[in-house]
Amino acid sequence: MVTSAEEADNTVTFLLQDEDHTMGASLVDVLNRSSNVVFAGYTIPHPSERKVQLCVQTNGEVSPKDAVLAAAETLAKMCDSTKKLFRSRFEEFGNTMQE
């Protein structure tokens, strides 16, 4: 899934196989909100190939790989808290409807 294509200074381009805008945009978004990331962006070089190039530059505090790793973990945790909250709110909604 992941191969590093180019490495210079603190910039790495990752190639995500079998991914699209769903993961590209979400990851870039989380990366950009991290204070150690200087630049994060993605591109889909060809629309008929399910490949995403993810370019990350950090300020040197962390490596780009660790930044993406942290972002992926953050995204997973964001999903979990969203699901948890949705479940409880849905239950509450069901209870109020019954009353």
Partner: peptide, 9 residues
């Protein structure tokens, strides 16, 4: 979405 992110991590 969580499993995509988890898989990448």
């Amino acid at each position: 979405l969580a499993s995509k992110a988890g898989g990448l991590a």
